[in-house]
Design a protein around this nucleic acid. Structure first.
Lengths: 335, 335
DNA sequence: CCATAACATGTTACCCATAACATGTCCCTT
DNA sequence: AAGGGACATGTTATGGGTAACATGTTATGG
């Protein structure tokens, strides 16, 4: 691999002059520039970013730490992140934690050793420690999708409360009285927040007796298990609010196995859409978060922080959700 | 940020001793180890990988350059790549080229400047130049999904020919005679290879007169346009073989707009599946490539190359596809 | 014609961790 | 008792680029 020294030697100039040519900085005469450029071309020289990275402690690299890129919601977020980063000449290192704290900590350590400039971070739990660890190392961080209390950190997330409220209200207005929530873990913000939105809608509808109708579970392993549990109630609920798309699809499977038709026998509403190009015939009534924007805006915020620009105080940007009423929800059947 | 020197000073030892403690290399007495470890903890020291990276020209970083992570096929590949990389302590930089050569070249340049150790590369065209550029810079590369002629490079891909052959044969066996291929660009291997598999099946069935029934288009912009063109033939084909999932979904949309039912009026077969967790009620007859394995195996091959292990000669690993016959294909209706 | 600015190029120090080598101690073996 | 291996720690050079500073040249204007 040729270095800037090899180029300088071949062109008969100092390395600094080569550097000026490469970065278009300072004064360089046309004759020198030409000489240097042809030396670069002859040698096939490619500058080594590691030098300046080490010297100035700037790697132009961000990390995106999320639970699982396999979920189309996160895929779309990732695309927003990547696009925003690319516009400003930053690279993205991708990390899947699978909601696994050990894996997450491993990744965080590795990223800190790499001296990445910032992280877009979907924490696997609601502790403050991980974020504080990052901040202590002077690495920028914006938390995605989930809110954390007691931490002074920028957050970009969807309106989980409002989305769940709208979906629950929609089910109530269809005439459902016995509605259950199929939720994720209790220590994850989106789970609890969506449950809270549901409860608010139920309270307002005077259905407080169903306030506790919440089945907690996992976002990942065996997503149909949650719905199976909920179906054991007798009579089973007539409507279900799934807290994310994986849980909704798991529920669909267990409804199918129980011989229940959607929406004739049970209604199902959920969060997050599948892009039309993947699913051309969408069926589920959903509350959709602006996933791409979430990634894009969070990255812009992070990059502005790295430039010491942007708002003084910490931001908690809550993006509005949009409800799409489709075929999976209908009035309850007369018993 | 504390450096190894700060730790050494605080522990009253040489930096080299600290290095030995961190990397568990060489001899260190227990007493010294304890001193150093508490100094590390006190200072919150995190080693800076950039030093050794610069010194030894090894970044423990790979890049995954693909067309669009938004496509679940690529998402799954990406997951395989990431898992394999993580097992061996490598990070993945994600790049979406959108099949855009200019964007691709930009990324390649940026990655070379970063001195990444290797690339998993889905080339946006079938030229040899891009791969040669990478190889000239002494960066490992494994080409994914697409074959390139005239380049000495490892390739891991699915059996596009065989998959298309199987799907076409399936349509023929159902009784279809007028079958069209909805294809991608002519300069992309998977397009041409799948068209070739289709033609082989048609030839064997004595349907050579339909040999040219191929509609070329784009993988990305306006995926329903290809099917629209194909429908203008009169009579229109009774069966369609879409060359990837995006094109298939675009076709479904244009069939719907034309008032054609699938499979009653037209049959549709395609490539690549949507994971069950995303689409619990799969409808399309598809030829499925082992996407996760493709990513996983390619990464393992790349990493073995970086260690100067693995097979002597270049590998072209062709992974078998599996056909899933579902509701989107049926015998042609009597006219 | 000289002071000064603009132009042009060069020199040096620095970032951080570690391989390679150097030095020294202690204990065991013959 | 001497020699040698295992143990323990330290010193130095290295990698590639550029900010900061230094030096020299040419053009401009009063």
């Amino acid at each position: 691999m040729p270095t800037i020294r090899d180029v300088a030697e071949r062109a008969g100039v100092a390395t600094m002059t080569v550097s000026r040519v490469i970065n278009n900085s300072g004064y360089v005469s046309d004759a020198t520039r030409t000489k240097v450029e042809s030396a670069i071309a002859d040698l096939g020289y490619v500058p080594n970013m590691l030098g300046p990275s080490l010297r100035f402690n700037q790697t132009n690299t961000l990390a995106l730490i999320l639970t699982d890129i396999t979920n189309p919601f996160w895929t779309t977020v990732a695309r927003g992140v990547e696009d925003a980063a690319q516009e400003q000449d930053y690279s993205i290192i991708l990390c899947n934690t699978d909601e696994n704290l050990k894996k997450q900590d491993q990744y965080l350590n590795m990223l800190l050793k790499r001296r990445i400039d910032g992280m877009l971070f979907v924490p696997a739990d609601n502790r403050a420690e991980s974020v504080q660890l990052i901040q202590k190392q002077n690495v920028g961080v914006v938390v995605l999708d989930r809110s954390l209390s007691n931490v002074d950190v920028d957050i970009v997330r969807g309106d989980s409360f409002g989305g769940a409220y709208q979906l629950a209200k929609h089910l109530v207005e269809l005439g459902h009285r016995d509605i259950a929530v199929l939720s994720g873990p209790q220590n994850i913000f989106t789970s609890t927040e969506r449950v809270a939105g549901f409860r608010q809608a139920m309270s307002e509808a005077g259905l407080d007796h169903n306030y506790e109708n919440v089945y907690w579970g996992s976002f990942r392993q065996n997503p149909s298990e949650i719905a199976e549990r909920a179906l054991q109630a007798s009579p089973h609920p007539t409507a279900f609010l799934a807290v994310n798309n994986f849980i909704a699809n798991g529920a669909l499977q267990s409804f199918f196995q129980a011989g229940l038709r959607v929406p004739e026998d049970v209604s199902l509403a959920s969060f997050d859409d599948i892009p039309a190009i993947i699913n051309p015939a969408p069926f589920l009534t959903v509350s959709v978060q602006p996933a791409y924007d979430m990634g894009y805006q969070a990255t812009q915020l992070l990059l502005s922080r790295l430039r010491n620009e942007g708002p003084e105080e910490r931001q908690e940007i809550v993006l509005p959700t949009e409800i799409f009423i489709r075929q999976s929800t209908a009035p309850p059947s007369a018993i």
